[in-house]
């Protein structure tokens, strides 16, 4: 019997916590979840997105991280001391962080008997890509800095989850 997952907020928080604790040794605190509202902060920060392709084409997961925090993450991951991270390093690291988060999310959300598949990470700076449909925005805090994770509304849909199990 495949256990039904907890709420999507719980799963996303769990996936974020595991990824940040293992990759950058930072704790995250869940702040709020909003619907169809783009984050006002982080407009000059860093973002990365990954498409979830299988077992269901849920759509795109997007993460945004403010500038100073992203530099801190890259310094921690690469063990940089006294040298500022390059843009290339930040793009690559954020893609790798989101890759790990999506891997955990798929494992927590999907039927383990089905093969999971996610796309390649795309990273950028500044305005995040426009969302193609309804989404929810999960706001978590690392210290006093905000990280936002946008996930398609369908990712929350229990009916899709039930269909996938059957």
């Amino acid at each position: 019997m495949i256990p039904k997952p907890g709420s999507c907020e719980d799963l996303i928080y769990k996936a974020l916590s595991e990824a940040f604790e293992t990759l950058v040794f930072e704790e995250v605190v869940l702040s709020e979840v909003t619907s169809n509202k783009l984050p006002e902060a982080n407009l000059d920060g860093w973002w990365a997105s990954i498409k979830m392709l299988a077992p269901l084409p849920w759509g795109e997961i997007v993460i945004t991280v403010p500038d100073a925090l992203m530099n801190r993450f890259t310094e921690a991951i690469l063990g940089l001391t006294g040298e500022a991270p390059t843009a290339e390093q930040n793009f690559d690291n954020l893609g790798e962080i989101l890759n790990t988060i999506c891997g955990r999310l798929m494992a927590l959300r999907s039927n383990p008997d089905r093969v999971f598949r996610i796309g390649l990470p795309v990273s950028g700076r500044g305005l995040i890509p426009e969302q193609s449909g309804p989404f929810r925005c999960v706001n978590v805090l690392v210290g006093e800095e905000h990280i936002y994770l946008l996930a398609p509304e369908s990712f929350w849909d229990d009916i899709i989850w039930e269909l996938e199990l059957s």
């Binding site: 890759n99 891997g103 089905r114 093969v115 999971f116």
Partner: peptide, 22 residues
């Protein structure tokens, strides 16, 4: 990064020697 038993079975059938999760 994908902790996935179905994928693990597929890779083992091809001959992977070890799967390590990120």
């Amino acid at each position: 990064s994908l902790t996935n038993p179905a994928l693990e079975s597929e890779l083992k059938s091809i001959g992977v020697d070890k799967i390590i999760y990120k």
